[in-house]
Simulated assay, not measured.
Amino acid sequence: MTKQTYQLRNEQILSNAINHLRNTPLNPDKPYFVTIQEATRSLSQNAKLWACLTDISQQVVWYGQRLSTEDWKNILTAGLKGQRSAPGINGGFVVLGQSTSRMTVGEMSELIEMMSAFGTEQGVRWSDESRQALEWARRFGETKRAA
Rank of each mutant, 00 (worst) to 15 (best):
W126Q: 06
M115D: 02
N16K: 14
L53G: 03
T54G: 14
E38A: 15
N23G: 10
G123Y: 04
K81G: 14
Q98F: 14
G88D: 07
L26R: 10
D55W: 02
D29I: 01
V61Y: 05
V60A: 00
I13G: 09
P25Q: 12
G79Y: 06
Q122P: 06
P28Y: 03
F93Q: 13
T104F: 03
T104C: 00
E135W: 04
K48Q: 00
S44P: 00
A86T: 13
T69C: 02
Y63Q: 15
K73V: 05
E121K: 15
T35I: 10
S127A: 04
A86V: 15
A51G: 04
V105S: 03
N19E: 13
I36N: 09
E110Q: 15
V94W: 06
N23L: 07
V95G: 01
G91Q: 03
Q59W: 01
Q132R: 04
V34R: 10
T69K: 12
W136F: 02
P31Q: 02
Q59E: 00
D128Y: 04
L49K: 01
T54S: 13
D128R: 10
G88P: 10
V124S: 06
A86N: 07
S57C: 07
A86L: 13
P25T: 06
C52L: 10
P25Y: 08
Q37D: 11
R84M: 11
Q7A: 14
A86M: 13
W72D: 04
I13Q: 12
L96T: 02
W50V: 01
E113Q: 07
Y32L: 09
E129K: 04
D71T: 05
Q7H: 13
V105E: 13
E11G: 08
Q45M: 01
T24Y: 01
L80C: 08
I89K: 13
K81Q: 10
T100W: 05
D71V: 05
A133Y: 03
R22F: 12
N16T: 13
E121Y: 12
E135M: 11
V95S: 05
F33N: 09
L43V: 03
L134A: 09
F118K: 06
W72F: 10
T69S: 10
I75Y: 14
